[in-house]
């Protein structure tokens, strides 16, 4: 029983002739982490918008195919998306970080005690408890990114969609986000993440979806990130790429640990 199912979905933005998503099919199970990899224009961001029920409902445009989500509407037990530009995702209605994170839960009409608990947990999970009283307008890009993710997590969604969640973060912040993704999946939440932080994926993702030109090219386990085709597309992990460039022979290792193991053999 999949939580999210896309069946042969194509999507056109308003006033465009070419579809941004072509015939894409994908099923995501509860507690599964699926990573979308691809180059600019591959359609990963569009797939996330479609999965979030924002395209075409809010974005406009035209869709073909079926999108099935087993959960409630937006937010609680529903789905939440984090877009890659954190400064446009502040509500504008909150004058402290704590209120910003509480914005979603308050919109769901939860009682105040429940909101307080959910906000505390989300602030804690993103390591931003110390920022709680700050004005969001004074935060750095990385801090904002964490606040925005916390704002989605606080709504306790059943499906989290992340578009380049680590783009604004330093390595420490990125590590924290990836640990959070695993923790969410451990609690039964499904996560679909579009990212170019390929080296993190073998540790985080259950499955990899390779997208190209709006279409799903291949779906497989993380070992996909060490295959020749992905190396050529610039979508392999650094270790695999180095191994291949050094002509050390296929199959290429994915991670440093695997490379070390191969080297000893």
């Amino acid at each position: 029983m999949a939580r999210l199912t896309l069946e042969r979905v194509s999507f056109w933005y308003p006033a465009t002739e070419r579809p941004a998503l072509r015939d894409a099919s994908l099923a995501v199970a509860p507690g599964e982490v699926v990573a979308l990899v691809g180059n600019v224009g591959a359609g990963a961001s569009t797939l996330l918008l479609v999965a979030a029920d924002l395209a075409p409902r809010v974005v406009g445009g035209m869709i073909k195919g079926t999108v099935d989500f087993r959960g409630r509407g937006n937010g609680e037990g529903g789905r939440g998306i984090v877009l890659p530009t954190p400064w446009t995702q502040l509500s504008g209605m909150a004058f402290t970080v704590r209120d910003e994170v509480a914005f979603g839960p308050a919109n769901l009409g939860w009682p105040r005690e429940r909101i307080a608990g959910a906000v505390d947990r989300a602030l804690d999970a993103l390591g931003i408890g110390a920022l709680a009283a700050r004005d969001p307008a004074t935060l750095s890009g990385g801090e904002l990114q964490r606040v925005v993710i916390a704002g989605i997590v606080a709504m306790e969604p059943a499906l989290v969609l992340l578009d380049e969640p680590t783009a604004e973060l330093d390595p420490e912040g990125a590590g924290l986000v990836w640990r959070l993704v695993r923790a969410l999946a451990g609690d039964g939440c499904s996560v679909v993440v579009a990212t170019s932080d390929l080296n993190a994926l073998p540790e985080v993702a259950h499955r990899i979806v390779w997208m190209e030109d709006g279409a799903v090219r291949r779906i497989g386990d993380p070992a996909l990130l060490a295959e020749n085709a992905l190396c050529e597309a610039g979508l392999a992990t650094t270790v695999a790429d180095v191994w291949r460039t050094a002509r050390l022979g296929a199959p290429y290792p994915l991670t440093v640990a695997q490379a070390e193991e191969r080297w000893r053999q």
């Binding site: 933005y13 308003p14 006033a15 465009t16 974005v59 406009g60």
Partner: peptide, 12 residues
Amino acid sequence: VLHALPRRTAAR
């Protein structure tokens, strides 16, 4: 501004 707006944005 209206003329500089890309059609894809304006159409929304």
